[in-house]
Design a protein around this nucleic acid. Structure first.
Lengths: 330, 330
DNA sequence: ACTTAATCTGAAATCGATTTCAGATTAAGT
DNA sequence: ACTTAATCTGAAATCGATTTCAGATTAAGT
């Protein structure tokens, strides 16, 4: 069923049917009713692809995520969805599985008019990203990283990690371990580590390389890196750069017949769904991922409509102080 | 930049450019090279919308999910993505936020040629779903529920729950509580409960209504429902219908100064990411959600290509026996 | 050398909508 | 009654690709 068929059935021209469907231009009541009747009878829905071609607008926004099955990504997407819904827009997700070529490929695929705009959650932004992004005609909003020339919504990783460290320091800890993540990830790998280092130096504490371990994003890795630290010495507190790493570390500590927080305090970052219900409840810092998604989407829509938007926005965080950090008696 | 511009620059017709791009028909080497040179120079990428209109194929599959930010949904989507990638297909996600009108709206929106096929994860399938689905021209695969007339990929909720119960019974438990979920959800609310009831009756045990509590999907609800059960009597084991409910229940039990599994054994279902690392590690049953996604996508693609596919497929499960269930000494 | 098949090419039609434009009718204003 | 503005309508052009078709050229086969 296409518009021509409806027109024939209703005894009008396709133009009139289009006017009825879109409520535009003049249509005499009698013909409008006739068209509406036919549409209802045959259950006509217009071909969205044809509409998109003519209107140069698809009402779809593309979202490029590194891995949808992570809490971070799915929360951001949740936020984006909320805003998109209000704009009667669908979202098209490209799951890149952390592969850079996939990101590039997705950018290219989405770019040519398939979507009205793109929200990109990149872990790492390479030269290639820039090159491809520059050739793209639809607006792009970056999430999670500051990318020059593009509106970016970023988390305040540095200050969040710093706040966490200040909390640990305030509890009297002096020997503080760190479980981090590869520097390929700027936000998590670099900024959070920098905060750790700066906090120590501001507190006039020495940095001890034996207390620093770098893993990946898995729980298992948290276990392994904690093991590595304990092989050298026993800190009184450890800041892990994600909740998952913290949970792995706690398991390792427990296997060493030590307890959390009495023997060693542990903190995470992210405030995953279960952190609150872990035993002990994990002290962590919540990055407002859903808010990030909401802001990214709002920015994208104003970018689409006005062509301009503020360049960088930083999303807030909040400490979640629970029970995995103990006062260190002097 | 459109195909006409490329044609002009290369001194050929649009038809020839199309032939070069799609590697179809005859093109003499000299012209092919000329076209390729121009394409490379200007970085031309074809308008996907126009291609879709002509080809009657968008290379996008639609996925309707109740809530993307749940482990279940994101794992299924992960599986779908994997298969879609192999078919050079993007996925368009409609997040319905558990609202039925949204599901219907999404079905309608996606249906008219915007996607080549639809995978639908419905929690509840109403008359309205049927009516709309019937009017839709693209193939649909259902996930999570058997829907007459549509290929469905379902989890074996009944046998998974039954296997869990058999495990509990084999450990010698006789007073077994149950924390379930509203019967609106057929798979989780009805089938898992039926398995509980059947397992009891097969073991010639009485059903005790005071040991049965119905909540929702949250951790908090697990806590509340456990509270309700404990107000009446203390079972030796409780089967919760999801890991989240189980974790809530464990917290409640702990707050009653009882221990898991020594005083009360607990089981979950789902094998969420953290179940293994919970303390105690949770005995649960893993439903292979990613496999579900993979199978749904595979079925959809054969449906698109062949127009026919087996009607119902049941995805396997596996018990994960960990430490939250204890032997009940006689 | 001549027939037949294979190769090559661009004009025109097409996918299914929307919009412009010009012509026709009706309503409003004096 | 006549001018002007508002209302109404459908034919044709358009969005940007692909494909069919027919005609032209080249290669292969005898």
């Amino acid at each position: 069923m296409k518009i021509k068929d409806i027109a024939k059935l209703a005894g009008v021209s396709p133009a009139t049917v289009s006017r009825v469907m879109n409520n535009s231009g003049y249509v005499i009541d009698e013909k409008r009713k006739a068209v509406e009747k036919v549409i209802a009878e045959v259950g006509y829905t217009p071909n969205e692809i044809a509409k998109s071609l003519k209107n140069r607008k698809t009402n779809i926004i593309g979202v490029i995520v590194p891995k949808i099955s992570t809490e971070t990504a799915s929360r951001v997407v949740d936020g984006i969805t909320e805003v998109a819904k209000a704009h009667d827009c669908q979202i098209l997700i490209a799951n890149t599985d952390l592969q850079i070529e996939e990101e590039i490929k997705s950018l290219k695929f989405l770019s040519n008019r398939l979507v009205d705009g793109i929200i990109m959650m990149a872990t790492e932004v390479t030269e290639q990203h820039y090159k491809v992004a520059k050739g793209i005609s639809v607006p792009i909003v970056m999430v999670g990283q500051q990318v020059d020339g593009y509106p970016s919504i970023i988390h305040d990783d540095y200050h969040a990690a710093k706040a966490m460290m200040k909390h640990i320091l305030a509890k009297g800890h002096q020997e503080i371990g760190f479980i981090g993540v590869s520097p390929h990830d700027i936000a998590v790998g670099i900024k959070r580590k920098q905060a750790y280092l700066d906090a120590l130096s501001e507190a006039k504490l020495e940095v001890d390389d034996q207390l620093i371990a770098i893993g990946n994003f898995s729980i298992e890795s948290g276990y392994e890196q904690m093991e590595k630290i304990l092989a050298h010495k026993q800190p009184t507190a450890v800041m892990a750069v994600t909740d998952q790493l913290a949970i792995g570390a706690i398991h390792c500590i427990r296997d060493h017949r030590l307890t959390v927080p009495e023997d060693i305090s542990i903190t995470g970052m992210g405030d995953g769904k279960l952190s609150k219900y872990f035993i002990p409840p994990l002290t962590t810092v919540r990055l407002h991922h859903k808010t990030t998604g909401i802001m990214a989407a709002k920015n994208l829509f104003t970018l689409i409509e006005n062509g301009y938007v503020k360049n960088e926005m930083v999303v807030d965080f909040s400490l979640r102080i629970r029970e995995s950090v103990d006062e260190k008696e002097k």
